[in-house]
């Protein structure tokens, strides 16, 4: 798939050290508008640290991140989200004491949603409860059921993962960075999430997906980047990446590669 020329997100030589340990070492990549970039790597390879660094949840030791040519590294997390670079959390972070649909009122109340949402999007004057139920319905919360009205603490993992995505959607995002949205889900739940991700791409949202579920990731992702020990090993299509010796080494003995290679 040929990507458009100007990258929407540029990550330049990003480095993060915790004490003496370097979690990320000079990682660079470009993200083009409308594509899905998959990031894979063994546990502890720095994937989540990379996301935290891009979205401002941790301070980078060195390197820069540009969104549409504007430098976003060094900005506080809420400013970056306000520009449209949103993220999900690997460990879900709903507001457990609020009902599911009230969870979405918070992002709908944000300056970005008020600015970009217009009346229908909850905007300044819109009814945020209605909009939030609309968004939840798109993500598979049945409108007529009790599910959207249940307290978040009573919802199963599958719904909480969708709520993470819903929070991003409520912000009218340009980029959604998904931190393992498939993990912890059953096969049928994943099967219903995959079309959802494909639809987000069709709606023009650019996605970065960190995943351990390689088969599903390779189905949706346009490009794959592999991290190991905080370094970028390779970037390319699924076939290129999986044929690479270094990647095989990083995943040595891992059943995941065998399984995926069988299917590829």
């Amino acid at each position: 798939m040929s990507a458009p020329s100007t990258p929407i997100l540029q990550v330049n030589q990003v480095t993060k050290t915790f004490g003496g340990i370097s979690a990320l070492n000079e990682v660079s990549f470009d993200l083009h508008a409308g594509e899905i970039l998959g990031i894979i790597g063994p546990n502890g390879s720095g994937k989540t640290t990379l996301i935290n660094g891009i979205t401002g949840f941790i301070e980078l030791t060195a390197g820069e991140v540009f969104f549409r040519g504007e430098k976003i590294s060094g900005k506080p997390a809420h400013k970056i989200a306000d520009m449209g670079v949103t993220r999900t959390f690997q460990i879900m972070r709903p507001y457990y004491s609020l009902p599911a649909y009230k969870n979405l009122v918070i992002p709908l109340f944000s300056p970005r949603a008020k600015r970009t949402g217009g009346w229908r999007g909850g905007g300044k004057l819109g009814d945020r409860n209605t909009v939030s139920i609309d968004i939840l319905e798109e993500l598979g919360f049945e409108r007529e059921s009790f599910v959207p009205y249940k307290k978040a603490s009573n919802l199963p993992t599958g719904y909480l993962k969708r709520m993470e995505l819903a929070r991003c959607l409520a912000l009218n995002p340009e980029i959604i960075i998904c931190d393992e949205v498939f993990s912890g889900l059953s096969m049928s739940e994943i099967a219903s999430m995959v079309p959802l991700v494909e639809r987000l791409q069709m709606e023009g949202i650019t996605l970065i997906m960190i995943e351990h579920r390689l088969r599903e990731l390779f189905r949706v992702a346009n490009r794959i980047m592999v991290l190991n020990f905080g370094e970028k090993l390779i970037e390319g299509t699924a076939e290129e990446v999986m044929a690479d010796e270094k990647v095989k080494e990083a995943y040595f003995g891992s059943e995941a590669v065998e399984e995926v290679m069988d299917h590829a």
Binding site: H78, A81, Y95, P111, A113, A170
Partner: peptide, 24 residues
């Protein structure tokens, strides 16, 4: 109110509020 929900959200999970583009 909606603003009250933001207050309660700050108590419940401030990281999530930041990820929603709101300054805690």
């Amino acid at each position: 109110q909606d603003i009250g929900l933001v207050f309660r959200a700050v108590k419940d999970n401030d990281q999530s509020v930041r990820a929603s583009g709101i300054s805690i």
